[in-house]
Design a protein around this nucleic acid. Structure first.
Lengths: 246, 246
DNA sequence: CTATTGTGTTGCGCCATGGGCAACAGCACG
DNA sequence: CGTGCTGTTGCCCATGGCGCAACACAATAG
């Protein structure tokens, strides 16, 4: 390992992807020559990339091109940027209006993952949730995603606090659907409350949740309906921005 | 190295990309835990991916997401599939009609790269050009791309045969533009002749060439105009298929 | 404000895996 | 058919990937 913090074989694999993007297709020996490595090294790097779906053989033996895996990755990258970007102005306004931290969360496997956050103006603020997976049954965003069919409940609902709801029936998913928003009251962490509302994609399905979270002494149970209503309005606007016109 | 022909560190790098595609963003320690590697290993893999543009830091320290590089790679992958796929039926017909091998070539750097090929029906046929870079001044496709502004001539035009044209003036680019097709007569290889016509993209610029090549005893200078006309018609149809309506 | 804790980053040295060699398989061409 | 080129595989060694440990940075609690 030289001065720079990198991994040579990964660098080489990326160089292969770039060559294929430039040239459309290439053979093992072409790539070996351009990378100045032995052909068996080039072959093995290609095999790894092929197994990962990032390259594929283009019909003829030994001729490789970029694979569908890169298209899939790009799809994920752009979808994320789209939702994150389009929701940003709405979240900024909601954080100001509600006075608490506002997050966007999406379903990922059985969990709920926060993809963006705007901190509220208060000095005492929740910690950073971006990129973190949270248990769906114990978060307001997760409950929304469960109630509106974007997620299925796990078989085993783990307890985090004495208030955590650990039975599917106790989650009240039908009531959430009827009401249009969900809340958690010290179910994930003691002293933490949250409210969330559903964001819909172009086809009308719920694809994300917008939530507000804060300390329970500020985000009291009495405030939940008013915050819920603000989030429902915000969620409607975000839905419109990403293509839902229902 | 175990039974399978792969590279562990590249596999891990790809796994990181998949996790980021799934989750939107992740921290070093999250990735290290999921991959079951040390955090310094995860950090180095991320550093390599970041240097290659495939991941980027999502604003907050230590939080990574997929980078624009994957979008760029996907763009290259889909553009190639599009042109290659859309031109396929036309090339099949041309190969039958002309009786020679038909190629599609695109500009790449200063060279001309063949991206697809349909062999002619003859027993004696040219070799496989797909994925190979060819010198633009010595190939019919390259001359077309030069004449119609998709490529700039290299400073030094290398000689391959006694017939190779080694001066820019000798290429006759103005005549090619006027005529609508280009030809080479034993300029790349002794015994090899070729004809090419320009393919236009949606914006009207020449983005590729469609060519027919064969042995000089079959693809004689007398045949060149007739073959040129067939290729011009074929190129027009391919252009339409990929969005050019001029 | 300080102390603590958790996470990101860097340097070092060990050893496992990446890489080159060589052989073999596959393919195209004369 | 033989030849030459390219793709693929097995082996072994040395180098580059990895984990450890220390340090830097940031957030949080008291």
């Amino acid at each position: 390992m030289g001065n720079s913090t990198t991994v040579q074989s990964v660098d080489r694999a990326i160089a292969i992807l770039e060559i294929l993007a430039r040239d459309g297709a290439a053979r093992v020996t072409d790539l070996a020559a351009e990378l100045e490595v032995h052909k068996s090294t080039a072959f093995r790097l290609l095999a790894a990339l092929e197994q990962g779906g990032l390259v594929e053989q283009s019909g003829e033996r030994g001729r490789y091109r970029l694979g569908f895996g890169v298209v899939r990755l790009a799809g994920a990258a752009t979808a994320q940027l789209d939702l994150s970007g389009q929701s940003r102005p709405v979240c900024l306004r909601l954080a100001e209006e509600i006075g608490e931290t506002v997050n966007i969360a999406v379903p990922r496997g059985g969990d709920t993952v926060n993809i963006s956050q705007v901190r509220g103006p208060a000095a005492i603020s929740g910690h950073n949730w971006v990129g973190q997976r949270t248990p769906s049954h114990a978060t307001s965003s997760g409950k929304v995603l469960l109630a509106f069919g974007a997620l299925k409940p796990a078989a085993d609902l783990e307890r985090y606090t004495p208030h955590t709801i650990t039975t599917p029936e106790g989650l009240g998913l039908a009531e959430i659907r009827e009401r249009g928003w969900a809340a958690t009251v010290e179910e994930l962490e003691m002293g933490l409350n949250a409210v969330a509302a559903p964001v819909r994609g172009a086809d009308g399905s719920v694809v994300a949740a917008v939530s507000a979270s804060g300390p329970s002494y500020r985000l009291t149970p009495e405030r939940l309906p008013e915050v819920g209503a603000a989030l429902v309005a915000g969620a409607r606007e975000i839905s419109r921005r990403i293509g839902y016109y229902g």
